[in-house]
């Protein structure tokens, strides 16, 4: 599992790539990936093109991010989920909290 980040050219969007299984072992790396950045970031994108699996602790981590990004006012988008990941997000009704792009 590895987590990498990317800033957009204008600096306003942070894209977090999660590779492999997104589970409790990722929590430190995930938190680290967004907490260090400066306040000019207004949009967050979670790229799951290489994420094979998501468990309940990962759901928790996503919620933490959302919280950090402004809660109700946050702009966090989740992209490129595979079938299994999508299923878990849907079951957990995360569409109500995040913008999920297929």
């Amino acid at each position: 599992m590895s987590i990498t980040t990317e800033r957009s050219d204008d600096g306003s969007t942070l894209t977090i790539h999660i590779q492999g299984r997104f589970d409790f072992s990722s929590h430190q790396a995930f938190r680290h990936s967004y907490e260090g950045a400066d306040s000019s970031i207004t949009h967050y994108v979670i790229d799951m093109s290489e994420t094979t699996y998501l468990d309940s602790s990962a759901l928790g981590m996503l919620l933490l991010l959302r919280d950090y990004a402004g809660g109700e006012k946050s702009d966090v988008r989740i992209e490129n989920c595979n079938g299994d990941v999508r299923r878990i997000l849907t079951i957990s009704n995360f569409e109500q909290l995040f913008q999920i792009d297929d």
Binding site: D55, S56, S57, L59, G60, L63, L64, I88, I91, S92
Partner: peptide, 9 residues
């Protein structure tokens, strides 16, 4: 909340 999601799934 943030916990309990596992068993809910």
């Amino acid at each position: 909340g943030l916990s309990g999601r596992g068993l809910a799934l």
